[in-house]
Design a binder for these strands. Sequence first.
DNA 1: CTATTTGCAAATAATTTGCCCATGG
DNA 2: CCATGGGCAAATTATTTGCAAATAG
Lengths: 162, 162
Amino acid sequence: MSPSVIEKRMRLFGDRCAELGLAATHQRRAIYRALAESERHPQPEAIYRRVKRRIPTISLATVYKNIKTFVEMGLLREVGCEAGSYRLDANLDRHHHLVCVNCKSVVDFYDRKLDQVRAGQASPGNFRIFRYQVEALGLCPACRSKQGLRKNKKRGQYGQSR
Amino acid sequence: MSPSVIEKRMRLFGDRCAELGLAATHQRRAIYRALAESERHPQPEAIYRRVKRRIPTISLATVYKNIKTFVEMGLLREVGCEAGSYRLDANLDRHHHLVCVNCKSVVDFYDRKLDQVRAGQASPGNFRIFRYQVEALGLCPACRSKQGLRKNKKRGQYGQSR
DNA sequence: CTATTTGCAAATAATTTGCCCATGG
DNA sequence: CCATGGGCAAATTATTTGCAAATAG
């Protein structure tokens, strides 16, 4: 990632920590920096290995704890929106998914307009695209009505920053 | 799922098994049926519990083995396209993902046209949508050039059935 | 019959937790 | 200071594997 982007992200990190009263420890900064620097959507283990080069005493548990914290703070997202394990789909017809960001439920979504989605430009890096699938992220009715009562939810989880 | 859809899927299952010379065992059929019946994109554990009601001696390992087989056969897909664990993204700017279906690498994809994606109709079930994210599934350059040498790849993994 | 597939148990991998010590503000 | 966070080890959860016995074709 370019130095200017990394610095922008580190500033966002600092601001968010200050705002939420989180200690900007050595470890926490290094973990976030490793994430901010990477292009490859790393898994926790990869972040751990990377941070360990600078802070050899770091523990994997600390990496996991901080990743969770960052996601709650809205500094980080999980790719694909389902952590943990297999979610399976026997529906081979063209369809898309509604994903509840709160309870992680997934509902099939048939929509002609979404079926027409195509990129406006050639894909970077000579990727060969077979199909497009749209994820609509939001809140399911059950979680909508619980909104506002939820604990530990700070801000920034959902929107786009620009 | 409606009975007619389930039967359609069971026929597809039977055909694929015959075609590939797979034994259509009692267990295998029950596992696939449980998947075909479900609306909720279940995890392996949920399938196991469901099948266990009909075949109390079924083992969780059998469920896992068959799920893998079905995915290889193209009878089943994983939602979100990344199995296993956390893939993290510190990029909060609006962007989409190119996902390699073979090696599971994920590359950020900036595209104005994809940023404009919206559903053509109200979302089912009163879901409240915050943002849309597009996944473009395909092959990265490295996997493209390895194409054809790959073992255990039968067919049907990538396309849409209609 | 005989090649596959199952069930079990054990192995491995991934993630979380509890607790006591260290440190940032 | 002293509340928050870190490190370690143990616990939990998720997934895979090896192998003898069962069974589909």
